[in-house]
Design a protein around this nucleic acid. Structure first.
Length: 352
DNA sequence: TCTGGGGTCCTAGGACCC
DNA sequence: TCTGGGGTCCTAGGACCC
């Protein structure tokens, strides 16, 4: 849109591409620095992690001093600001880490009533837009304190397990451990894109699906996983969204199998209206060390695997543009959409 | 407040099994 | 053919997070 608006003053528009690799590099450098303090580090996301000092710190003042030392060292040695939150569980530590930028805060259980209860309900972890509206409109709950002192059974009845969860959070109750292992089993992955024009014919949609699947397949193989579920999602120009998924007869990591399944699902799902967003995702992952074949396996599966392998090697060596499918030439559609950097990047686990 | 893109988990209904 | 009670799996959609 910016490009379009600045068509006449093109040379005055400065486009700055994102640099996820640099972001990740900074993140990794910070983790290395933190490892000097404790081996018990749980990387929660690209810019958040939990450190367990359970048996390493004896007093509140010692913890506070340590927090400041770490924060100051990161700023001095790595050049960016961090916020530190200290408490006896991950929820409270995370909550008070957001109390300020470039700062160190504490939120121990005995401080919850004073520091957390006056906050608006949406400041509580796991209370999003929808839950906020329900809490305010249905129960008159406006602050975290209101929620903490509300009837749990009523919350459970109305909001199911989520109701109980946020009630516990409002009371500072959270007992998950700082995960010792850094390895998180990936559950699924997806690739999606929003087009700057309406997609109105099947041919064009097919190219989008192929392009998304190409990147997705490469990521899947790189992670040494196989998938057995493929899903397609569509968002129409009027913002309606829908999705369709199908379990495969056998596990796969073949790009064309993923793309063809996604396209079949697309044809079954699409109502013919103009589309602005298409997504392909895969899940039910398993390690690719061994695979269960079926009696009715696809034809030429070994050929396709070899093709993917060769394409992957070329692309890793010479870049994604080094070799592309001819159907994308002159199509105006990029042959390998989306995808994330290279290897591993931090993924969040479930709840904290 | 919403956008865009990457994820996880929960819920509810339906199909099917014993 | 349907009942009752115990399960599992599949599917679609919706909530939340960064």
């Amino acid at each position: 849109m910016a490009r379009q608006k600045c068509a006449n003053v093109g040379e005055k528009l400065i486009l700055v591409p994102p640099r996820y690799d640099l972001y990740l590099q900074c993140s990794n450098a910070m983790i290395e620095l933190l490892k000097e303090y404790t081996p018990f580090i749980q990387r929660y996301s690209v810019d958040e992690c939990f450190l367990d000092f359970t048996n390493a710190v004896d007093s509140y003042s010692e913890a506070l001093a340590l927090g400041h030392r770490i924060k100051d060292r990161i700023k001095k040695e790595l050049g960016f600001c961090v916020s530190v939150g200290i408490s006896s569980n991950k929820l409270l530590a995370k909550t008070c880490s957001e109390f300020g930028k470039d700062s160190v805060h504490t939120l121990y259980p005995f401080e919850v009533e004073e520091k957390m209860w006056p906050l608006p309900i949406e400041d509580l972890f796991m209370v999003g837009r929808k839950t906020k509206a329900k809490l305010i409109n249905n129960f008159g709950i406006n602050t975290i304190g209101d929620l903490a002192n509300f009837n749990v059974d009523l919350l459970k009845y109305k909001l199911k397990s989520h109701g109980e969860l946020i009630w516990q959070y409002a009371n500072g109750i959270e007992t998950s451990e700082v995960r010792k292992s850094n390895f998180i089993e990936m559950k699924g992955m997806g690739n999606s894109t929003t087009s700057s024009w309406n997609i109105e014919d099947e041919k064009e949609a097919r190219l989008f699906i192929l392009s998304l699947s190409e990147t997705l397949g490469m990521r899947l193989r790189n992670s040494h996983n196989l998938c057995s579920l493929v899903a397609i999602s569509i968002r129409y120009s009027d913002f309606r969204g829908c999705s369709k998924q199908r379990k495969l007869a056998s596990t796969t990591n073949v790009t064309s199998t993923i793309a063809e399944t996604a396209f079949t699902l697309f044809k079954e799902l699409w109502d013919g209206m103009p589309i602005r967003h298409i997504g392909v995702s895969i899940s039910h992952l398993s390690k690719d060390e061994y695979t269960q074949l079926t009696l009715f396996d696809e034809k030429n599966i070994e050929k396709k695997k070899n093709l993917d392998k060769a394409l992957d090697e070329i692309r890793y060596k010479f870049g994604n543009k080094a070799i592309v499918r001819s159907c994308f030439l002159e199509s105006g559609i990029r042959p390998m959409m989306g995808g994330i950097g290279d290897d591993d990047y931090p993924v969040m686990s479930s709840i904290l």
